[in-house]
Computed example of a mutant assay.
Amino acid sequence: MELKQVIIAYKAGESESKAWAEKYSKALEKRNCKVLMGPSGFKDNPYPVFLSSVTNQIDLAIVFGGDGTALAAARELALASPLILAVNVGGHLGFLTEPFELCQDIEATLDRLESDLYAIQRRMMLQAQVLEGGRIKPQPMSDRFFCLNEICVKPASIDRMPTSILEMEVDGEVVDQFQGDGLIVSTPTGSTCYTASANGPIVHPGMEAMVITPICPLSLSSRPLVIPPGSVVNVWPLGEQEPVTKLWTDGSLGTTIWPGQRVSVTMANCLAKFIILREEHSFYHTLREKLSWAGTRIHYDNEHRNGSN
């Protein structure tokens, strides 16, 4: 990899994350690399400035923080689609990040990157847009929103907890109406986040699929659904007199959905590309380590696993 233009984002308000971002920035500049650096957080979005300031292709995005910081990078850089090195500094679970210990030696890490001594994990993303009008030529009423984890349609109000009634259509056919707290459309990556909390299925991130999960439905028959990645999912809020239903992307507010409008969700035509520095990288190990997936409480010896037969 040639490191000519690199962007660095660090977790806003996290001093250690900022300190390491500054160290990497200085090391890269010594290698004649142009660096753009800034904080990323709930109230800080450096990526529009990054994208308007770059003069050439972005070779690499280095992100210091946790999963939220990594998600923001993947979401905001979706169309530019650079390689992302996410390092767990000040994060919590660290599902999407590389261990901090592997990146403490800055020069050795940069040498590895320039020598292509790493793996790349490509993860499917979703895109959503608010539409209005008929099926033939619907009117776009919002920008396109990208996500790596999930698109969520649910209401929000400062003075009450409204219940939503959502009608879901897949590839032109009405599947169900859900009454409850909302609806999640997630990627396999997002199946271990909000979707898992809503009792949705866990899907391996190496797959391409869309997972639809109702949030606290007022029905015992409402079930999660796994559908092909090429599907088109439309979600209509029903029975609303005022615009309380919102579109959320990876937990961030996207836009308001007005009565009569719908959210259309499809697979994005871009991938999130994460650099893997670990020599042993296992999705199942991550589930056991990060989500405390203990499995059965009684363990038996398997004398046949390494047998000669």
Rank of each mutant, 00 (worst) to 15 (best):
V226A: 01
M168V: 15
G239D: 14
Y284V: 10
I276E: 13
T255K: 14
K290R: 14
N199E: 12
E289N: 15
M168N: 11
C193W: 15
R288P: 02
D171T: 02
V235S: 04
L277P: 03
P188N: 02
V232Y: 04
S292P: 13
T266D: 07
G182W: 07
V185C: 07
S197E: 11
I227D: 03
L291T: 07
Y284M: 13
W258E: 15
F283H: 09
Y194R: 09
D250A: 06
E167G: 10
M168A: 13
A268N: 06
M207Y: 10
C270W: 07
Y300I: 08
E280G: 08
Q261I: 01
N234F: 09
P228G: 06
L287N: 05
L277S: 02
Q177T: 14
R278N: 03
C270Y: 09
S252I: 12
F283A: 07
I184A: 12
N199M: 14
L220A: 03
V170L: 07
E173K: 15
G239I: 01
P214T: 06
P237Q: 12
P214C: 10
I298T: 07
L238T: 09
T245K: 09
V185K: 03
H204V: 13
T266E: 11
I298F: 07
L253C: 09
G254L: 05
T189F: 03
E167D: 11
P259N: 05
A196I: 14
Y284C: 10
M168F: 13
G254C: 08
V175Q: 15
S264L: 04
G200A: 07
S191N: 03
R288K: 11
T213K: 09
E289W: 10
L218H: 14
T195D: 08
P229Q: 14
V235C: 02
T286C: 11
K246G: 07
G295R: 03
S222A: 12
I276T: 12
P214I: 04
Q241W: 06
D171I: 00
E242K: 15
P237L: 14
F274V: 08
T189I: 05
T195V: 14
V265N: 00
T187V: 02
H281T: 12
T189A: 08
W293R: 15
Q179F: 12
M207Q: 15
K290C: 11
G239K: 10
T256D: 10
L218V: 08
V244T: 00
S191L: 02
L225Q: 04
T266R: 12
I275L: 05
L238G: 01
Q177V: 13
T187K: 04
T192W: 00
L183V: 12
D181H: 06
G200P: 01
E169N: 11
S197G: 14
S222R: 08
V203G: 06
G295D: 03
L287M: 04
Q179M: 15
S219W: 11
P201C: 08
P228K: 08
L238P: 00
V211F: 01
R262Y: 05
P205Q: 08
L277V: 09
P217W: 03
D176C: 04
P229T: 10
G260A: 03
Q261T: 01
F178S: 11
D181I: 02
V244D: 00
K290P: 08
S252G: 10
W248F: 13
L291H: 05
A209D: 05
S231K: 03
L225I: 04
